[in-house]
Amino acid sequence: MKQATIGKKEIGKLLHAAASTYKVYAPVAEADDVRLVGLEPDMEPTLEYTNFKRSAKELFFPACELICTYENETLTEAPLPDEKFVVFGVRPCDALALALLDKVFGEFGGSRDPYYMKRRENGLVIALACLEPEDTAFCTAAGSGPAGTDGADILVYDVGKELLFEALSEKGEAFLSDYQKFLGKPGAAAKKARDRIVEKAKARAAELDLHGLKQKLERNFDSPLWKEISEICLGCGLCTYQCPTCHCFDITDEVQGRKGRRIRTWDSCQYALFTHHASGHNPRPSKNERMRQRVLHKFLYTVENLGETFCVGCGRCVRNCPVNLDLRETLKSLQGLSAQDKAKDNSGT
């Protein structure tokens, strides 16, 4: 089944039915917030949200992952995650982020990350296209967009009283077939509404101009602009934690007597100790180098290594930075730099 509709009021029934086979993560209203949570029988999913504070990356790349346990120096590998699950309601930007993380945790460097890749195998992603992205979002400029189709198995369109499901992968098609008793065939009006959403998304103007940014970043590693940009930064790392494409992590051992475990936890290039050597040397001793690393990693190095910008324009870092250090303004300033090689540039700028 490639396309199907369901009345908005029925979506809870579908997801609860799916919950008997899968673990279902769906948007649920909590005190002051809508969060993606494991759906319990007494919860009702909601569609009243723009985006979640926490991105879907934590369902595939959890903040804390067990690698192995050990006792008396004998190691026991932790079993790989095997729970089949469905994630419903992520926005296209967060779904694209998963497609990007697939590249890093997949074959890059010659090794596969077994935990993340197993979860991607086990997980079915149902994304919900945006009617009105957040005002801090710049998804179109970043290569995604309110109706982007990367990274998801099914894309859902809000076509009025109904939701229109569109399968983007075999897994998605199989899901729609399995639950066809809840679904109907899309009528002409629904299809038209879906097309309007797609057209509107295509017509959406890029929120900023990122053309040519890569060349400028290549040539301005030592620019004093980095110091200016990072002057108000607190170095708190919040941006990296909320970012759906940030993937830096730490591996540490915890021990109690003769037993212990090795865990992987999220880490951030914004922390002072991230690159601190045991000798005391630190290649990135201050905020400017660390801010520069973050921007260059996302907008230059991943482009060179993987052909992708590691930013989906979700706007979380913009909205939540405690000092309103706006990545959009940072990128605009960087766009003002010269793309000329210093040797070739005779004007002295």
Binding site: A63, C236, G237, L238, T252, E254, L273
Partner: peptide, 26 residues
């Protein structure tokens, strides 16, 4: 989420080396 925004926003958290980051001992 252990992002440490609270610590970095706090003027009193000026320690060069925070107990939460210590590895020796952890």
């Amino acid at each position: 989420i252990r992002c440490y925004a609270c610590r970095e926003a706090c003027p009193n958290c000026y320690c060069k080396s925070c107990f939460a980051d210590s590895t020796n001992p952890r």
